[in-house]
Each structure stands twice: as structure tokens, then as C-alpha cells.
């Protein structure tokens, strides 16, 4: 009796600790996010607040920010065009062809590369393309960096999406005479298309907001996240905040679309 009460008490204590830790960490994450958004808004809106009578919109600044944004989007889009099909094939290989002898090795590679810090993707291409092959910093090199940064993350995301589909749907398809290719094209892909789209959007958003992979290539790469870093380092906080605001707004839109895509397939 005493032992059972002790067990119940320790279970209650454990639950209380876990709940407290969860609330604490969620609160901290939320505070961090709020402070970023607040900081960006404060710096971006400061001219409007302090010089409300004489304030004029710096249209050049906005145009520059939008131009950089379009260029960044273009780079990310091209990286996506290359990495999405490859990531899809990789994810299908590691989830649907588990019997294949290379599958475990490829899964390990994907896991390692997906957890790799962004700057390492830049370092890898910098070392190979610029130092070894003496290539100039061009759009192709930048796309290669973004591809290396994005592809493993997409592969891992896609693989998680495929793994979430219960095996009994695949079994049901096999039971009516589908082969593996038909299971993939008729069952798996239609069931996951929304979640895959959400993964692509989230990957794109993550890449758009990452400055680390391209930092090694200097500040003239016309990439919004790198520009923000360069402006902040130079001391142009207001301009950096304007750029950051544009980026945050875009990321907000992308995340919202991703969340809409990622609704439960059963809906």
C-alpha cells in the first residue's frame, strides 16, 4: 500500500516536472521569437515614430530590399528545382526500398547531412569549386551551395512524410495486385502530396532565412539574409531591420501556406 502510494507520488512528481519544463521551454521559445519580431519592428518603425511629421518613405531602400528578395527567391527556386526531385527519389529509396543493400548507408548520409550546420555546405562548395577548380563566384556556385544545404533536409522531411503513412495502405494496394511502382504512384504520392508540398515550402523558407551557407562568398552575393548580416555588421541597424522585416513578412506568408498544405489528409 505504502509502496503503491510512493509510486503514484513519484509519477505525479515526474509529470509535474515534465509539464513545467515543457511550459518553460515553450515560453522561452515564444519570448525569443517575440523579441526578434519586436526588435525588427522597432528598428524598422523607429524613423516613423521619432520623425512622424517629416517622415517620408525611403522608396529606394524598399526597392533595394525587394530586388534582393526577388534575387534570393530566384536562387532558392533554382536550388529547389534541382533538389526536390532528387530528394524525393532519395526519400523513396530509404523508405520504400529498405531491402536494398545501400539503403542504410544512404539513410545515414542523409541524417548526417541534414544535421550539418549551414556554413559547412558553404565550406564544402567553397573548398571544391573556388579553391580546387578555381571557379569564380557565380550564380551556379551559389545554387550549388543552396542545393547542398537544402537537399538533405528535404530528403529527411520527405522520408518522414512517407513513414507517417501507415503500412496497411501499402498492404491494401499490394493485396489488389499493385506492384511497388504502382503503390508509390497511385497510393503513396497522392496521399502525401500536401505534406510534401508543405515540406518543400518549409525547406524554401529555411533556406531563404539562412545566411550561413553563403557568408563565405562575400557580401555581394545579392542574398537577402546575407545582406541583413552585412548591414547589421556595418552598423546600419535601421536598414538591416527593414530588410529583415521584408524577409519576416515573406517567411510568414510561406509558413502560412505550408500550414494550409499540411492539413490532415483525412480532412
Amino acid at each position: 500500500m505504502v509502496k503503491r502510494q510512493g509510486l503514484r507520488l513519484s509519477r505525479k512528481l515526474k509529470n509535474a516536472l515534465i509539464t513545467t519544463a515543457f511550459i518553460l521551454f515553450t515560453g522561452l521559445s515564444f519570448l525569443a521569437l517575440l523579441s526578434i519580431v519586436g526588435n525588427v519592428l522597432y528598428h524598422a518603425m523607429q524613423p516613423l515614430i521619432t520623425h512622424v511629421e517629416t517622415f517620408q518613405i525611403e522608396s529606394n531602400e524598399l526597392i533595394f530590399a525587394l530586388k534582393e528578395l526577388v534575387l534570393s527567391l530566384w536562387l532558392v527556386l533554382l536550388a529547389l528545382v534541382i533538389s526536390t526531385p532528387l530528394a524525393l527519389l532519395t526519400a523513396l529509396l530509404i523508405t520504400e526500398y529498405r531491402d536494398c543493400c545501400f539503403t542504410s548507408l544512404i539513410r545515414l548520409f542523409v541524417d548526417v547531412l541534414a544535421g550539418m550546420p549551414g556554413i559547412l555546405a558553404g565550406l564544402a562548395v567553397y573548398g571544391l569549386a573556388l579553391s580546387l577548380f578555381q571557379m569564380p563566384t557565380s550564380k551556379i556556385v551559389l545554387i550549388l551551395v543552396l542545393f547542398l544545404f537544402l537537399m538533405p533536409k528535404l530528403s529527411k522531411g520527405f522520408a518522414q512524410v512517407f513513414n507517417e503513412i501507415p503500412f496497411h495502405y501499402r498492404e491494401a494496394a499490394y493485396a489488389i495486385g499493385a506492384n511497388k511502382k504502382q503503390v508509390i504512384f497511385h497510393i503513396l504520392l497522392p496521399m502525401t502530396v500536401r505534406a510534401l508540398s508543405a515540406s518543400v515550402l518549409l525547406g524554401a523558407a529555411r533556406t531563404l532565412g539562412a545566411s550561413a551557407p553563403l557568408l563565405l562568398f562575400g557580401v555581394g552575393v545579392h542574398y537577402l539574409a546575407v545582406d541583413i548580416y552585412a548591414l547589421a555588421v556595418r552598423g546600419s541597424d535601421g536598414q538591416a531591420a527593414d530588410y529583415a522585416l521584408v524577409l519576416l513578412l515573406l517567411l510568414g506568408v510561406v509558413f502560412s501556406i505550408a500550414a494550409w498544405f499540411d492539413r490532415d489528409v483525412m480532412e
Binding site: 496497411h168 498492404e171 491494401a172 499490394y174 493485396a175 489488389i176 495486385g177 496521399m191 489528409v265 483525412m266
Partner: peptide, 17 residues
């Protein structure tokens, strides 16, 4: 598998169809 059909414990119609 076409000649020997199968029904599973969990009803599993394809939800997207």
C-alpha cells in the same frame, strides 16, 4: 494476389480516393 483477394482487420479504403 488478384486471384486470392484479401481484407484486413483495419478498414483501409484509400482516403484520397
Amino acid at each position: 494476389r488478384q486471384k486470392i483477394g484479401m481484407v484486413f482487420a483495419q478498414p483501409n479504403p484509400f482516403p484520397t480516393m
